[in-house]
Amino acid sequence: MKRLIAIFAALLVLSVSSVAFAQKLVVAHDTNFKPFEFKQNGEYVGFDIDMWKEIAKRMNLDYDFQPMDFNGIIPGLQAGSIDAAVAGITIKPSRAEVVDFSDGYYDSGLVILVREDNNDIKDINDLKDKIVATKLATSSVDLAQQYVPKKNIKLFPNNDNMFMELMTGGADAVIFDMPVVKDFEAKAGKGMVKVVGPIYQGQAYGIAFPKGSKLVSGVNKALKEMKADGTYNELFIKWFGYAPAK
């Protein structure tokens, strides 16, 4: 009898665990955050996309991707209309108060981008009387507001418009996430723009969830396994062209 009870209890735990993730999850991602997520040949691709697919496979999760503007992601998680978000989201205290995060999966920071012929801007202290473009609802806005008057900050919902504003002379500089800026500098903006100054505000990206989500521990476990077995390194090299720092 005791053995039967133990078996029944184990089956019950397994059943409850399976039900917890039985529904199809809604996983949000940014629409324009190259090389983490972007549209190519009619579909969204990138480091974040591949990383989540691998995590979901290891956790046996059923999900649909939901592309959306970055500024709607945190509100969507708070409202419960999104189950997870993988969108190069900086882990910072103000966000951690309203959503839960996985362990950090990418170490980043903010940099300044200017046109190639600009020799006036050498670091962030040179921006006080300049027009600066950046992306709405990102940590770049927080940094810009410390050095630039609000009236001189132009906010855009996506990267393309932000970079276009710089290229067409509507802004003197862009402040944004280092990997995205470096990707633009090396590809679409090659020979026309340059990064100046150091990396500001070293920060980590994390996968975000509604408060109390039961997905967090499993995602963290999958991330650790991916780093241990080399899968993370393979994806990193695929999208960034070099191996992650040890």
Rank of each mutant, 00 (worst) to 15 (best):
F101H: 09
V98H: 04
K39H: 00
A20T: 04
L136S: 09
A79V: 14
V86H: 08
V195P: 15
F184G: 04
E234N: 11
G197D: 04
G206V: 11
I199F: 04
L110R: 06
A228C: 02
Q146H: 09
K190E: 14
M167Y: 09
I199H: 04
A56D: 10
M68H: 02
A6Q: 11
R58F: 09
E116K: 15
S81L: 13
I237D: 07
P157D: 15
L12P: 01
S108L: 00
Y147R: 03
P149A: 06
G88D: 11
P157T: 14
D69H: 11
I5C: 00
L113V: 14
D177A: 15
D30V: 11
Q66F: 10
S17I: 00
M192Y: 08
S94T: 14
A208V: 06
V98K: 08
T134F: 08
F101Q: 08
V180F: 03
F36D: 13
K182V: 12
Q78D: 09
G206A: 10
V195F: 10
M178S: 11
K24R: 15
Q201W: 08
D48L: 06
G80D: 07
A9Y: 01
V27C: 03
K224E: 13
M192I: 04
P198W: 04
P210E: 10
I237Y: 07
A6L: 15
M164N: 11
F70T: 11
F8G: 15
R3N: 02
P157R: 14
F70M: 13
G72M: 13
A79G: 15
V86W: 05
M192T: 05
K92D: 09
G191F: 02
V19E: 05
F156P: 00
I5F: 08
F38E: 03
G88V: 04
E116M: 13
E116F: 08
